[in-house]
Write a protein that binds this DNA or RNA. Sequence first.
DNA 1: GTGATACGTGCAAACAAGTTGCAATTGAGA
DNA 2: TCTCAATTGCAACTTGTTTGCACGTATCAC
Lengths: 138, 138
Amino acid sequence: MMTNLIAGLRAEGRRLTRSRKAILDVLEKSKYPLSAADVHARLKREQVAVDLVTVYRTLAVLKKLGLIAQVELGEGQFRYETRHGREHHHHIRCRGCGRIADLMLCPLKKLTALVERETRFTVEEHSLEFFGWCPKCR
Amino acid sequence: MMTNLIAGLRAEGRRLTRSRKAILDVLEKSKYPLSAADVHARLKREQVAVDLVTVYRTLAVLKKLGLIAQVELGEGQFRYETRHGREHHHHIRCRGCGRIADLMLCPLKKLTALVERETRFTVEEHSLEFFGWCPKCR
DNA sequence: GTGATACGTGCAAACAAGTTGCAATTGAGA
DNA sequence: TCTCAATTGCAACTTGTTTGCACGTATCAC
Ligand SMILES: [Mn+2]
Ligand SMILES: [Mn+2]
Ligand SMILES: [Zn+2]
Ligand SMILES: [Zn+2]
């Protein structure tokens, strides 16, 4: 991951900084996608002083480098999760407590061709999220 | 649809108003999901004076009544579309021009049981959106 | 139809997520 | 170590959405 980060940054003439390492590290350690505010809060907890604006800017860079993925879960905010070492997958969010769990499967791998035929668009990406109730909230 | 609206409203002790009819009507006529601002702009174009705040409040009511669905397409805003007379379906959005097209299929109908087994959540809903390039932008 | 009343609306203000301008700081190559 | 463009922090801003409150109006009982 750090290797990908360095390589990606250099390829665009960008620099490896303490903030960037720390932010990517926070995402690597999380079991679920984090919002910019989440990342910022965790950095603070770890005594890493990084401004929220830098978090936003860094998330944009990491996303452009393809190191993290942006996720939308109906909350009116974006979340981000690392792509390193994790296969393409999706999520489910509890409508009671907000808990987010990974769903390590994707029924769409084979469907791209069909979607392209139906819509006449070229498909580049997709998002698939589920909403429901976790065992505790049910 | 107007029938559903009246019935739904009454069931909750709410009233049928000019604004609510007009907003639902705008959504019924649109071929793609609209943002609150979109709805507001179309009302203005039709000389229907409704405040943007009322649009937001009405969208919330219609959503609660199950008459409209909320859609997220990676834009940092919500869109809404009527459910009346339209089967459950999904969308694709062009990364060039922003055009949104319906995709009248859902590969997930049979998948709920599997998702519930995998995650131990109860599944209530899902969102599936595609991103790519339309013929003109490709 | 009239009146009472609770629901709905407009306007201003507040919020919240995310972005931008700019001066000061710092990573990376020479 | 020096140079300089990339990065950062801070303040201000933009955009999408929500809230408070006084006034307006749909609905219902009479
Ligand atoms: Mn995940
Ligand atoms: Mn649609
Ligand atoms: Zn997938
Ligand atoms: Zn579906």
